[in-house]
Amino acid sequence: MRRRSSLPVTFLLPTLAILLVLSMVPTLYAIVIALQNRELSSPGYSWVWFSNFADLFLDRRFLNAVWVSVKWEIVTVVATMVVAIGLGVLMFEVASPRMRNVYCLLFIIPVLLPRVSAAFVWKFAYHPLYGIATYPYRLITGGLIFDPLSKPATALFAVASVDVWQWGLFFAVIVLKLLETLPPQPIEAARLDHAKRWQIHAYVTLPMLKAPLISLMFVKMIESLRSFDLIYVMTRGGPGVATETLDMYAFSQGFIESGKVSYASAMAVLMMIATVITFTMLWKRVQA
């Protein structure tokens, strides 16, 4: 009865066609623009083929941006997973069912905030003179000034802390829910063998959750690519180029500093190729 219906075609085809058009038109056009020398200030353009790409590899600021982006990915993904697993296990171990519900609700709040809001909240908190997060430091040191966002050594970590505040706490909730889905027998068995609490998690529960935890990390890797809002509001890529990730640099090349749309697009195309290849490979591996 189901087989003969026209439903799959009428329900699926229009949506897929629209998704294809909406995604392929900009993607292909990004490549076209990258091969030209368009600028925002003038309507004329000509084809320059691969010279934008050649220029990129000689551009030290671009290479810096690649390195900053890689650092950002590693720092945020690792810290998020550590916080999530740590807090998730703690909730599982010591929180009563009622407290678990309370914590779950509290831990979801930061991730719901617009990143612009989260960035502002912490930009105020990190203010060297009036910030609430720097207040304990001022109190202990008797008024010394600590300005995490304007020091090249700490700026990236200060911005990354906001990302972990949003995602690490949220993922802790998911880790807890994953632990709750596990059957109790293996944990009981390990307990009878006098395994310590941390041993139970390190050798029994977390290995059992390997697949979902890897999927979770995969999601975080994708979401970490969207760092632009945080960095734009908190540091604008500064101090200097210490927090200038690829999207930040592409934006400032294309819009703020020089209006070199084609150059920015070449960068975006390289990012797109890198992420699509990496994540397709990772996804196939996760699924396998």
């Binding site: 995604s23 038109v25 690829l246 934006f251 975006a268 990012m271 797109m272 996804w283």
Partner: peptide
């Protein structure tokens, strides 16, 4: 494949979508 295609839209860097769309 359809599910993967839908998910893969999330891989696209927002800048890579926004720049060409602005020109368009």
């Amino acid at each position: 494949d359809i599910q993967f295609f839908v998910l893969s839209l999330r891989f696209l860097p927002p800048v890579a979508v926004a720049i060409p769309l602005m020109v368009i």
